[in-house]
Design a protein around this nucleic acid. Structure first.
Length: 271
DNA sequence: AGAAAATCCTGGTGGC
DNA sequence: TGCCACCAGGATTTTC
């Protein structure tokens, strides 16, 4: 399940290789979350300028227009000079002079959307409400606390919503809250400045570390070059319900928050 | 208005 | 072994 680190690892794994390539063809498979938003025949001839990222969206910047790619829950990208024939779950191919970029996504929660520019209303609808990037200077304690103050709901749910900070998904939300010693059920607005600072540091640390380690393979994540990630070897609480906490040995608890699983240690994480 | 629930989808798993 | 109910979850849409 790709969260920000997986998306960033994917970006780094093919950004350089696809830069300056010219699009030759587009192949569409089954429908994804949203329609492409343009006639696929408009894309051949365009040149790939760069591959950026905003939250969990990859941004393929052409000399004219931008392709937004979201991996959803089960999506992964491959980029190689030659790829085998498309399988049942390969729903998008961008064939270029330097290789083919392919989206493989069994559950089809992912999306590939074309916009003429990031100022386009469609792009604004998808990207406009996103909070600051956690691994950039735009993510600071003061601003983070100000945004948390606006939400009375549980801090775990607020992190997932992506308005206070973008890119923290279900796995890393549990992990960051454990690192910060904060109970996931605490109302976001009630966190003290000290605890917000701890959470801020924890998010930066856990996401940064996950990027360094190549993302998570809790399901079957691999980068666009096929390299698996290693983060799953080091989760402190996620997926460890009933197992002893690595710090204090009390059993890790599992609760549901907004239909999502949350893992925490009742001893290490204070309400 | 803000928060919770429903929704999309399919592979994997556990029970019988 | 087969069948089935159920779970996983990002982000939008709908309901409360």
């Amino acid at each position: 399940m790709p969260e920000l680190p997986e998306v960033e690892v994917t970006r780094r794994s093919f950004a350089h290789a696809i830069e300056n390539a010219t699009v030759q063809a587009v192949r569409l498979g089954k429908p994804l979350r949203w329609p492409l938003g343009c006639d696929p025949d408009r894309l051949p001839g365009r040149r790939v300028r760069s591959v950026g990222r905003r939250g969990k969206y990859l941004l393929l910047q052409f000399d004219q227009g931008v392709l937004l790619v979201h991996l959803g829950m089960s999506g992964s990208l491959r980029f190689a000079p030659v790829l085998p024939a498309a399988g049942a779950h390969d729903h998008f191919d961008l064939v270029t002079t330097q290789g083919t970029l392919r989206l493989h996504d069994p559950r089809r929660f992912g999306a590939v959307v074309y916009v003429d520019s990031l100022a386009d209303p469609v792009a604004h609808k998808l990207l406009g409400r996103l909070g600051p990037e956690p691994l950039s200077d735009a993510f600071d304690v003061t601003g983070f606390q100000a945004r948390l103050k606006r939400h009375q709901s549980a801090i775990k749910s607020v992190l997932l919503a992506g308005e206070a900070v973008v890119g923290v998904g279900n796995i890393y939300a549990s992990e960051a809250l454990f690192l910060a010693g904060i109970r996931p059920t605490v109302a976001a607005a009630r966190l003290s400045r000290t605890r917000v600072a701890r959470l801020h540091a924890a998010i930066v640390k856990v996401l940064g570390q996950a990027v360094e380690l190549g993302g998570s393979t809790l399901r079957d994540f691999s980068s666009a070059s096929g390299q698996a990630g290693y983060f799953q070897l080091q989760t402190m609480v996620y997926g460890r319900a009933g197992l002893p906490c690595h710090v204090c040995a009390s059993p890790v608890r599992l609760i549901k928050q907004g239909q999502r699983s949350t893992f925490y240690c009742a001893t290490c994480q204070k309400p």
